[in-house]
Design a protein around this nucleic acid. Sequence first.
RNA 1: GCUGCUGUAGCUCAGUGGUAGAGCACCUCCUUGGUAAGGAGGAGGCCAUGGGUUCAAGCCCCAUCAGCAGCUCCA
Length: 651
Amino acid sequence: MSQAKDAPQVAGPFPLSTLRHSVSHLMASAVAKLYPGAKFGFGPAIEHGFYYDFDLPEPLTEADLRKIEKEMARIAKRSPKLECVAVTRDEAKARLAAANQTYKVEAVDRIPEGETITFYRHGDWEDLCEGPHVDRLDRNFAFKLQHVSGSYWLGDEKRPALQRVYGTAFWSQAELDAHLKWLEEIKERDHRVVGKHLRLFHIDEMVGQGLILWTPNGSIIRSELQTFISAELSRQGYHQVFTPHIGKLDLYKTSGHFPYYKESQYPAIVEAEALAKLSTEGCTCAELSVRLESVSAHFAGELNARAGREVIGPEKVLPDEKLVEGYLLKPMNCPHHIRIFASSPHSYRDMPVRLAEFGTVYRWEQSGEIGGLTRVRGFTQDDAHLFVREDQVAAELLGCLSLVKLVFATLGMHDYRVRVSLRDPDSSKYVGSSENWDKAEEACRAAARTLGVAWEEAPGEAAFYGPKIDFIVRDVLGRSWQLGTVQVDYNGPIRFDLSYTGADNQKHRPVMIHRAPFGSMERFVGVLIEHFGGRFPFWLSPSQIAVIPIREEHTPYCTELEAQLKAAGFRVDAMLEPGHMNNKIKQAQNQRTPFMLIAGEREAAEKTVAVRRRDTREQEVMKFDDFLALARALRDGKRLDLGETPKVAAT
RNA sequence: GCUGCUGUAGCUCAGUGGUAGAGCACCUCCUUGGUAAGGAGGAGGCCAUGGGUUCAAGCCCCAUCAGCAGCUCCA
């Protein structure tokens, strides 16, 4: 941009991103020197550093990165000046073509007409680049190349695969060191690391990629959360339901999930008899697939009539006897919930009907995308479907968001974004009348406003069946994850021909609200693990209280404490086995147990406990009854603190 | 799915072609210790899986599976 020309070209503090971009040039020049024939892609500054994409004949290794770093240092020693040269479009292409920089030639073509084309040059190396850059690459900065990974030219998987080298740079070695240390700390907060250390979950090769086994410790966290959420839901008038993990293909043909999203579903389960019959007929896989995905003319006719347009084309229609029935592992809970709603007649008086279920769904995510708890193939949504009258949409949306607000506030999560996805006003692909859309969109906006956090509108991002509100959080590695979503749906009720009887004794079409405010228990707990770094608030902590005797003869008193704590419903880890107190303290600390109660002669005599809180070496002796009261208050109030006695201000 | 890297004891990791190692955890014995690792001993591995090269493979090659970093995708 023109920023390059506006920025004062004097020695002094450039923005860090400018330095990083310049260091990426430095890296590219080192690569050009070390690997003749290298072709260059893009090399921008990014949030915590920079990268550059190269096309090289051989894959780069860690050792290569060190070699490149050395060459960079050598070039930087000469304090090269970075000079900007403006050229014409033809000249730029000629220069790049001469250097056999095919990607860069393509990049020139992507520069809009009328924009100035510039090269930046240092030493005998130059690069097509819009800048800005630091004026001189002297020694007053520190850098490190971090890792190499693959990427595609222009982010398109059909184009050549390039090697992307990531690095970072700072104005001083101290800042770089601090950044690297921060990265180490981040790693320790990673839910995969914490999850293993605290034995919260397990992913087993024998079970399958992306399928989470909740171990006892993690199950405690999950069920505490579910209990908390469920209590709130019943307060808000939801009804708990349970549905099975599979459903007939017809169900998903009606909902529209099959076959249109079949590439992200586990394959259909075909009835054994049908399969046997097909194989005697010599049916191929391709034919089987067609026969599974097709519908009868009657089915298509009914659905198209209800939708008022052709949602199932003639190419999907086969004669009845050709159709093959099967089951699908459910990719969503809504069809099952819809069938519950449809199973009995409804009056306008009993609307809205709110059906909630912690429903487990299965999706065939790409293998390279799966990891930890945040991207999995089987997950349990905190799902609910609200069947509402149109005049109730706004109020129900508010109800959904108040739950989100309550849970996030309870967990101390304030760092989340809200995105309100609206329809693209120019498009006609949407279901439902435009007046209804206007109302629904305004209701979404109004609901988002009540949250008191940053939110943005995303025109054109709505689903074709309705607008939605999404909640997005970042993990410790800075990756954004969509947690929950609240969606208005005009389409489902049409496809399933849902109705209720209005005051006018006529049938009316309800509107559906899909909402899973925390997305999935897997992802949500993954984010929570990182949010707390494994130091869960008392009510969520798998182990809440460790009881540690000072000597073996203090065991009877500790047993008594254990019994009372357990009777009060706490999760107690009585460490009564022989062994040293110090070692037990260390173990409890490593387990991130919020409280250690340490008891010896004095405590037994006075019915007190020496309370040691997680992450502190200080101890506080208190009456056991007082501790019990404190623990109850922390648990029942779902408090985030551990009830530390406020420090008395110095007088 | 794509590119690259990785896979050794429950965990964290050493081991560059010649019969498998450490620390922690675990078990046994000793130790009675007032707030973050007492001592000694022991057990524990088909070196991810399947092929190949070699007199000889944890190590080299190929494939598969899984993990990691990105890319692409995420109704």
